[in-house]
């Protein structure tokens, strides 16, 4: 404990804020790479099963609501904008503005999850959740019924994992808002905000791919 840290935001083992900031953002990028690969396993299965069973995927996808999916896409892109703007305010030292935009991000995130909740409950109601009560005989043609479970399993796994990431991000947002209010960050030291932003934008990107892959396939599809 011999060294004195002049800056309260600087950990003892770093030389200066610059080194600390660069380490933290690099760490976050490394983490996001692992996230890419984590979702990658699901995307691999999606790609292969869709290639093998295009009709089952098209027909099952038609059971999802484009309106809800598209609406949520707009909401999520909007939350990415407010997230970016919160950092933009921090760069100007306007921490009140930062809080405002972070709260907006949090609200948009909640809107997304509420819509997602409605979608899920509909699926439960319609027996479209794979498992004991799964039954697509009312919805899919006899030829495609056998493989509908693959689509809906992937739908729930992919959107569920994505929603879980949203929830984690929103908890982090709450903590961050508290800390910004307490004056932990400034125009010189806002690394934590940047990390939050990187994570949030990543979750947005995952959705940008999920939306067309899950909701928008087979909209012009007609049974062969």
């Amino acid at each position: 404990m011999s060294e004195l840290t002049s800056n309260p935001g600087l950990a003892h083992h770093f030389e200066d804020l610059e080194q600390q900031h660069e380490s933290m953002t690099l760490g976050m990028w490394a983490f996001l790479i692992t996230e890419v690969m984590f979702f990658g396993g699901l995307f691999t299965l999606y790609a292969i099963y869709r290639w093998q069973y295009p009709d089952a995927f098209s027909e099952s996808s038609n059971k999802l609501s484009v309106l809800q999916g598209a609406g949520n896409t707009v909401v999520l892109i909007g939350s990415s904008l407010t997230m970016a703007l919160s950092i933009w305010r921090a760069q100007h030292g306007d921490m009140r503005g930062t809080v405002r935009y972070l709260v907006a991000t949090l609200l948009l995130g909640s809107v997304f999850l509420v819509v997602k909740g409605f979608e899920y409950s509909h699926k439960f109601h319609d027996h479209l959740v794979p498992g004991a009560h799964f039954d697509v005989s009312q919805f899919l043609m006899p030829e495609t019924q056998a493989h509908g479970a693959l689509f809906f399993s992937l739908y729930f796994a992919m959107t569920g994992m994505h929603a879980l990431h949203m929830v984690i991000g929103m908890v982090a947002l709450l903590i961050l808002i508290k800390r910004v209010r307490r004056g932990r960050y400034s125009a010189e030291n806002y690394s934590a905000l940047e990390l939050m932003g990187l994570y949030w934008h990543f979750v947005d990107i995952v959705w940008i791919f999920l939306f067309p892959l899950l909701y928008l396939i087979g909209r012009t599809w007609t049974p062969a």
Binding site: L45, I48, Y49, Q52, Y53, A56, P130, G131, A132, F134, A146, H147, A149, L150, S153, L154, F156, A157
Partner: peptide
């Protein structure tokens, strides 16, 4: 998820590989 909830990812009965 497949073992616990009967979701289909690799299950040959559902056309999984």
């Amino acid at each position: 998820l497949e073992r616990g909830f009967g979701m289909g990812f690799f299950d040959p009965k559902l056309g999984g590989d």
